[in-house]
Amino acid sequence: MKEFALKSEEKFHSHYLNIEKVNKRMTTRLFINNFVKYLFLASTMFGLIVLAFLIYTILRDGLGWINMDFLTNRLSTLPERAGIAGAVVGTLWLMFVVGPVTMVLGIGTAIYLEEYAKRGRFHSFIQTNITNLAGVPSIVFGLLGLTIFVRMFGFGPSIIAGGLTMSLLVLPIVVVASQEAIRSVPQFLREASYGMGATKWQTIRNIVLPASMAGILTGVILALSRAIGETAPLVAIGIPALIIPIPSSITDNFTVLPMQIYYWTIDSVLVDEYASMAAATIIVLLIVLFLMNSVAIIIRNKFKKRY
């Protein structure tokens, strides 16, 4: 490469930096910069490649097993007759409990924090508490559920016990999302409502909540998708490996898709087909999660920035 080093008579007042040396060094520095750039690009690609691999192996192993029978059959010890109907219904039941419970608790907490509680020690105490709860390992929530709901309340490993445990686990997601949504409602809307003589609660119910509903719903959907993908808390509350009947009431024992994946994966050393069945179940779970996230994104984009 032709160097653009300046001629020596143009070196004027340079005392410490030698132009030729600086330029020579620059060639190395630029080479390193370029090399590192591609190295970091490769590192960024690593995540993408792993993701592609993960999806590829799961599709390769599981796609062949997905058919109507697999989706509608009950669990069976015989691979060719086993299906995930019970787990699908159990997952729906779980959402049926977690959705309303987290919505009521989450929105209530968020309204209290944003609209009623005075900023102060107690407010920041609840806020810190929610932040810390979000970081507690899910297995610890499982132990809480085991001790309180399964044993103390005597619910056993039922839908209600699992649903309440899961609700507490994902509650911080809904609270934080709802708080953000409520905070983003412009103050002038509230003032307009008060100005017409509305009470605080009327303002919240008729103005604040409708305006923040999109954000709240997005949070609830994200919380639900976290809940139906979680396994550890349900293992801890003692959901058994084999449940043949399909649950029909909230006090029935149940299983969910991740539990089914778990048991089939660890038993794949015994029966080869179980690995493929686990992969097939993963496909179903990922499709459900994908759909839920798409709905969340659609809601968020549709209601984005109206003010």
């Binding site: 490469m1 032709k2 653009f4 300046l6 143009e10 600086v22 330029n23 620059m26 520095r29 630029l30």
Partner: peptide, 19 residues
Amino acid sequence: YREKNIFDKEFRVEELRTR
């Protein structure tokens, strides 16, 4: 810049900015 075109491919940006 001192008779060299700064947009020339061979004139390195970092070199220009050092000067």
